[in-house]
Design a protein around this nucleic acid. Structure first.
Lengths: 211, 211, 211, 211
DNA sequence: TATGAATGAGTCTTCATTCAT
DNA sequence: CATGAATGAAGACTCATTCAT
């Protein structure tokens, strides 16, 4: 086995076709949903031959998941963020600091991943991410329940709520985001509405706590 | 291709074919969703020839809409019910009578039209009722806004809430129902959870009102 | 549920399209093998629209297996035939009666299912019957081994042969048939050759027995 | 689509790319058969770009034939070996010397070209060598017939056998090898079985001769 | 020599609806 | 009313080979 030093000419594409396909696909998925989006159409609109797409992606599903890989992995990690002691300090709950943190995070996330969230929340039918919404709610619910257990361990005044209701609250949060996305609410308005939501949600929840 | 015509005497059970088709279709739509349900399968399971279905229904969509005609028209009328003066009497709001009425109506409706609501809320993709959920929320929202205007006309203490937020509240209600249906919650549990929800929602709302 | 007597007009096809498809498919499979035969071509040659084939058959594989259902089930049963005491009587072995029976059966079977055997033996790659030849040899081998065990139980002079060799003998038989089919040997010639084969095989085997 | 040309200095191992391709292809052909083996996969596993393969080989078929060039040409020559007078001396036939020679040659050849024989005998579908097995048998048959003619010219006691039967005998030999290969029989066992086969075959044949 | 993107025709299969009988 | 065969366009995906760079 000889080792030789060789000059190799490499060709690098400036306009990345991969990117074009992802962008076009994203639009098509947004417009028709995963299942009803057509590979043929994507090929045409990307100005790429149908077969060639499969040089870049294993299949339709891979295109979809790659479009969404970043926000999905972020959302999978997010619950770890709220696992700190800080979030169990009743003071921080009462004075609204926690609310504020979640609030800020929500805003940022929604603004950064508008279309991706749309895809995940109501365009994923038929893809391997079809149950993303449920999973998301479930994960958040789990985290909430965990949080509640810890909370009740720490504090004498116990909070009682059915698991279903906690589930509902989380679903309600996701649903709020859904509404924001479906109506293409822009950032400023969104902040305003989200405040309203947090207010509403907070006081409803307060009442449940103090029951 | 030659065809021979043969006369055969058969004894057949003359059931209401229309009904059978509707029932079978309902099940198929529930299981696979409107779009992924197959006319062939419906024909087979209904024991009706494929072509014959089209003597009873113009197309797949008509089957779907007919299955849902009753609950849809009921839901279209429901807002008229709450147009009575009774519902603007602040006393009735405070003492929870209105809440009680809506509560009872909700329970009854959900119990009577479980499957139909499922179809409307998450199996209608591809049908002409695909936007039922949105429509429903929109109509309720309109009614709510209408109600709020009247209310503000009548009472000196004005309630202030963004239209979007009112929209959200209605979407939240529909979403609660969605959750109930998705998890196949049975009547007793449902009543319990719905109470929780009304409690939560009522107090959140109260706070907004009194802001 | 009412029972009514009704006159029904039934239309019966004279030229059975099913048959046409099966025939054309058979030819195509013979010519190109299962995998390389094209559904499009089959459709064209059958004068049937491509989609329509799928009203008659679930898929390509079902066409193939239906063409071969009769000979396959016959071959699956054949070993039961040779399970009688008769076949263990050393006298019947010596005087060639058993040979004669197998001989006659072979001739008849090959004549009746020429093309089907061709399909099974060298055109089934990619179909669910792809391993038919191996299965066939294995089953025959099993039966032979079973036979040998019984034989050795009954008779004092034991016959010794490796399982592999018995396997080979059976494979050899199947291979003989393969040769007959590949060279389109017609009945009379076939009988002649088969005699030769049995003669050859018999004496080779005799020698092994008497070793 | 704009392309940028970049110069990169790389150290690469300069192996014989041709060799690597042949080796990898061989494995792929063995695993999936000629037709179902994928050029893409071969390229990837060879660590060679897909297009570059075509600088070394005209097409898929050429790869296949080059892999098999040695054993194929050997097999094409082998019959010349047995053309010597030595092989027509009845004494050498009777005392088994010829049998022994063929036996030894067979063993050696099979051991040396196991995989290649597998490729030739049951993985060549779709390639230009698809009919190798038939050709092989045919050539051997021709040689056998030639041999028989000479033999009958020389000796007074004539041997009578149909050409088809001689064909079968040769096919049977090839088939024995096939069985050895399909069951991955290792050398020692193989020798044992081959002895059994020669014994069986020899006596069967003896009988035919003395008829 | 080397790249790997691009091609284009091919694969099987599905489906709602229509239509001749 | 009833049949179910027929249609035709669409679905996702594969693959050996070519070609511009």
């Amino acid at each position: 086995m000889q080792i030789e030093t060789v000059f190799v000419i490499m060709q690098i594409k400036k306009t990345d076709i991969r990117k074009v396909i992802l962008e076009v696909s994203g639009k098509e998925f947004l417009e028709h949903g995963f299942k009803d989006a057509s590979m043929r159409t994507i090929a045409k609109k990307s100005d790429v031959s149908l077969g060639n797409i499969y040089n870049y992606f294993k299949n339709k599903d891979e295109i979809f998941t790659q479009i969404l890989s970043v926000p999905v992995s972020l959302l999978n990690k997010v619950n770890n963020l709220f696992n700190d002691e800080y979030f169990f300090d009743i003071e921080n709950i009462r004075n609204g600091k926690i609310k504020q943190l979640k609030f800020t995070y929500s805003i940022k996330f929604i603004c950064n991943y508008r279309d991706e969230l749309k895809l995940l929340l109501f365009k994923a039918h038929g893809s391997s991410l079809h149950d993303f919404k449920d999973n998301w709610i479930d994960k958040n619910t789990e985290a909430s329940i965990e949080w509640l257990k810890k909370y009740n361990n720490i504090h004498s005044k116990k909070v009682q709520a059915s698991e279903f209701f906690i589930h509902y609250l989380n679903s309600s949060y996701v649903n709020f985001i859904t509404e924001i996305l479906m109506h293409d609410i822009h950032k400023n308005k969104m902040i305003e509405y989200l405040k309203e939501y947090f207010e509403y949600s907070f006081h409803g929840w307060q009442k449940v706590i103090e029951k």
